[in-house]
């Protein structure tokens, strides 16, 4: 129940953890594009070495990384066979009209390698950035949109509060499921339709209590003088430090070098 598949946040104190979330988001975007923009063996070697180094710096264990990569296993599996059998070229093995070509093997390999780099880059961000920091970074990046009356601060607040209540809700579901099981509801009995129906006695009380919670939360916010985000003091300002600047330069440099290398 606790397995959040795609790169859960791993608390730590590495340089990657301390970087400004905006820099990290920008860098991640760039790193996700690079595997597709680089077209040379040397470039690819530099790029994957760099990513591997980042993984080590972030202090992410290889088993965590492996677990993240496993989430895309079936996509990779499918992709592999699609490329293997549909790429025309010089046949290696042929069974009837279906042929595995040299080019097919090569491009299947390359696509899977790209997919893995993509996943590693994306999960590096979520491994080293807490959801709350991500929300702050997003808020800071979208802040210019306030000009066109997009309520960015409110949205960020909604996001942070929602994230805060995920574990609370999870505990509640757990508690209610236990209570219903104690009264004899068998959650795993029957076919898919029956099992879906079994969830009704869990979700109804969960929703009821979530609404009650929301109501009380709104009252508690009201009682503490909340009048919308516009009246609030701006507290959590993000500052770009020297290390953020350096990190941005390093990633930009890497992009230029790997694309230039043939």
């Amino acid at each position: 129940m606790n397995a959040i598949p795609f790169g859960m946040y791993v608390p730590g104190d590495s340089i990657l953890h301390r970087l400004d979330p905006r820099v990290k988001m920008g860098a991640t975007l760039l790193l996700m594009v690079l595997p597709f923009a680089v077209h040379g063996l040397a470039g690819h070697i530099v790029l994957s070495t760099f990513l591997l180094a980042l993984v080590l710096i972030a202090g992410v264990s290889l088993s965590d990384l492996g677990r993240t990569l496993r989430t895309v296993f079936w996509i990779a599996f499918l992709m592999f066979f699609l490329y293997l059998f549909t790429t025309p070229g010089e046949p290696l093995v042929a069974v009837g009209r279906i042929a595995v070509t040299r080019q097919g093997v090569l491009s299947a390999g390359i696509q899977i390698y790209r997919l893995c780099l993509l996943v590693i880059s994306a999960s590096l961000l979520t491994f080293t950035t807490s959801p709350v920091q991500l929300a702050h970074g997003l808020e800071a990046m979208l802040f210019p949109l306030e000009r066109i009356r997009l309520p960015v601060r409110e949205l960020a607040m909604v996001l942070t509060i929602a994230l805060r209540f995920v574990p609370t809700l999870q505990e509640e579901i757990d508690k209610i499921a236990k209570a219903q099981r104690a009264r004899g509801v068998d959650l795993s009995a029957g076919g898919p339709l029956r099992r879906a129906r079994n969830l009704v006695p869990i979700f109804v009380p969960v929703f009821v209590s979530a609404f009650r919670r929301a109501d009380e939360l709104a009252m508690a916010m009201d009682a503490r003088g909340f009048r919308g985000a516009a009246h609030r003091t701006h507290m959590r300002k993000l500052y770009l430090g020297l290390q953020d600047l350096l990190a941005a330069l390093v990633v930009l440099g890497l992009a230029l070098v790997t694309i230039w290398l043939k």
Binding site: S130, R164, E216, H231, R232
Partner: peptide
Amino acid sequence: LVFQDPEDQLFSPTVFDDVAFGPINMG
């Protein structure tokens, strides 16, 4: 005003943010 169930009033990622919520609203 302090409500009965603290779980329903504490909604921030850190204790600091929660305690600061009122003064921040006051500007």
